[in-house]
Design a protein around this nucleic acid. Structure first.
Lengths: 107, 107
DNA sequence: CGACAACTTGCCAATTATTAGCAAGTTTAA
DNA sequence: TTAAACTTGCTAATAATTGGCAAGTTGTCG
């Protein structure tokens, strides 16, 4: 499992495109693609649906990869052990069960 | 496993303090503590060490709780399933192994 | 029903973070 | 050495987060 940037670079190479060509469909210029592949900035979330189509991949899975990247960055920023992801998962489950009980189906 | 805000509120109640008193040692006024307990804004990270001491708790565990809260918020913002946390963990492990191979011990 | 303490929320200005794009520099391969 | 592909530094614009005050709730006690 690679980072989102590395994943993008691999997909781009599969298609034999350079950064300029790859960015075209999303209106992203070469230098931005470079920064994205190198993890210096995020792929714009608003283009993620288009990206999934372009890559012929499942949107939800792609989104998971995308968001996971952010989570990892956050965890490393705070120098957390990987245990933090387990804690997060149980907090998430807790929140959902709480909201179900309160009738807030919004999850 | 509760949210960080709920956790704080529980700890405060254990000590029998009101929000004003609880915020005192960290220089945080009542309305801010309220927002923090209700998850409307973050406890300042710069005071987390002091908080751990004040609560007599292990700093790393407290930090995990604190950061996990952020991760959950992010995951929900993007409407991700809990699978995202597992993906994140494996991405994190991948990054670490990659950095070890490159001699960057910085994790 | 007041009155008071404890708490929540809305709003705003100020700080902080993130972004897009260009310019300049680096790498790679012929 | 040259050119294409890529990376990085810088800056102005945009977006996100914060602290604090004011105004509004809630809950309890007499």
């Amino acid at each position: 499992m690679a980072t989102f940037g590395e994943f993008l670079r691999a997909e781009r190479n599969k298609k034999g495109l350079n950064q300029s060509e790859f960015g075209q469909p999303f209106g992203i210029i070469m230098t931005e693609i470079s920064k994205i592949e190198n993890g210096r900035k995020k792929f714009p979330f608003t283009s993620l649906v288009a990206l999934a189509k372009f890559l012929g991949q499942n949107y939800s899975e792609l989104k998971n990869l995308y968001v996971a990247d952010k989570l990892v960055e956050e965890a490393h920023k705070y120098e957390c052990s990987d245990a933090v992801f387990t804690v997060a998962e149980s907090q998430s489950k807790y929140l959902k069960s709480k909201n179900v009980k309160q009738g807030k189906i919004k999850f």
